[in-house]
């Protein structure tokens, strides 16, 4: 195809798209049409970016007589523009705050704000107002809104969200989310002071999921070293929890992990997934000098490769042997803070 022809076709396509956009906007703005048709027209228009288009969308968004689905769609359609304007951010924050607005509109508001928050240059100055609104929403009767708001705040290590999550773990009658979720959210910040609660939760867990999450987070708490060792050694414990404990101990206390990992590898009565975790942990993170002198361990890993009790153990044993042979080693200890 010659270049002028290619250019002509391309220009036609652009003009067609622009016309569809104009038609879509016209139909969307035509309030005599049914909401479904306007919704469909809005989809054709894709994103609304011009000043008039945004103004038209704002009229629809703020009009409580309009269909909530259409309002939410209009909000999404101006999402990019919201991130560029403090006035629009204020308007959307107002929608999020307003408990009388339909949930669908507030959900769209929250999503739009969260997306806009990545446009740091414009959004940062509005952060206090946004945070203020989110803190209000964590008491909302709508579960989904409440959980999303908590999640956003917890990721930002928000003091108020952490305080409320701790309260909800201490007193289930004040629970904002499930215990497992609360633990997970608190885990965003090692300074959130949840380790005593986590240790209690491990002793008396509300669910296996919550216990597993708690054990995972205890990886950052040196005071929990003994507890993690106890869990790892407890054959009556759930395998998932023991696996989480192995990973946590490896990060927290590599020397202790090495000792207990070896016992697990040598023990034919152990679960295969746990043995695989132990082999991988040693291959990647253990003191390679000490390992090279441990003939008992080396010959057992060789044996597990030759007569594997499971595919995962075979793979881990092969990786261990290959890394030892090539002299390739992981870091001498667990993850590093840089």
């Amino acid at each position: 195809m010659d270049t002028p022809e290619h250019r002509r076709q391309y220009t036609e396509r652009i003009e067609r798209a622009a016309e569809e956009q104009r038609e879509g906007l016209r139909d969307f703005s035509d309030r005599s049409r049914p909401a479904e048709e306007r919704q469909s027209a809005l989809r054709r228009a894709v994103a609304l970016r011009g000043q008039d288009e945004v103004a038209e969308a704002v009229d629809v968004i703020l009009d409580r007589e309009e269909d909530p689905t259409l309002r939410a769609s209009a909000l999404r359609a101006i999402g990019i523009e919201v991130g560029k304007s403090h006035d629009l951010i204020d308007m959307v924050i107002g929608l999020l705050r307003d408990g009388d607005e339909p949930e669908m509109v507030r959900q769209a508001a929250l999503r739009t704000l969260q997306q806009s928050s990545f446009r740091a240059a414009t959004f940062n100055p509005k952060m206090p107002e946004y945070t203020d609104a989110l803190r209000t929403v964590i008491d909302d009767p709508e579960d989904s809104l409440r959980e999303q708001a908590l999640e956003i705040l917890a990721q930002g290590k928000d003091e108020y969200a952490q305080r409320r999550l701790l309260e909800s773990l201490e007193d289930p009658s004040q629970a904002l989310v499930s215990p497992g979720k609360a633990v997970q959210l608190l885990g965003n910040d090692i300074h959130a002071d949840y380790y005593p609660l986590l240790r209690d939760m491990v002793q008396d867990p509300p669910s296996t999921e919550a216990k597993q999450e708690a054990v995972r987070l205890l990886a950052a708490d040196p005071a929990s070293k003994e507890l993690l060792v106890d869990i790892l050694r407890d054959k009556n414990e759930y395998r998932e929890v023991r696996n989480a404990s192995a990973a946590a101990l490896q990060s927290l206390a590599p020397a202790e992990f090495q000792e207990h990992a070896k016992q697990i590898i040598l023990d034919d009565g152990e679960y295969n997934d746990l043995r695989a975790t132990a082999i991988d942990g040693l291959a990647l993170f253990a003191d390679q000098e000490a390992l090279s002198q441990d003939t008992e361990l080396s010959s057992r890993v060789e044996q597990l490769k030759e007569q594997p009790p499971s595919d995962e153990v075979e793979r881990s044993a092969a990786r261990y042997i290959s890394m030892r042979a090539s002299g390739e080693t992981g870091p001498a200890a667990a993850g590093t803070n840089v």
């Binding site: 950052a220 040196p222 005071a223 070293k225 927290l252 590599p254 870091p331 001498a332 200890a333 667990a334 993850g335 590093t336 803070n337 840089v338």
Partner: peptide
């Protein structure tokens, strides 16, 4: 001291 093991100290200083 319980958390800042030698490898962490080294990486933190080097970086």
């Amino acid at each position: 001291p319980e958390y800042d093991l030698p490898a962490r100290l080294k990486a933190y200083g080097e970086s």
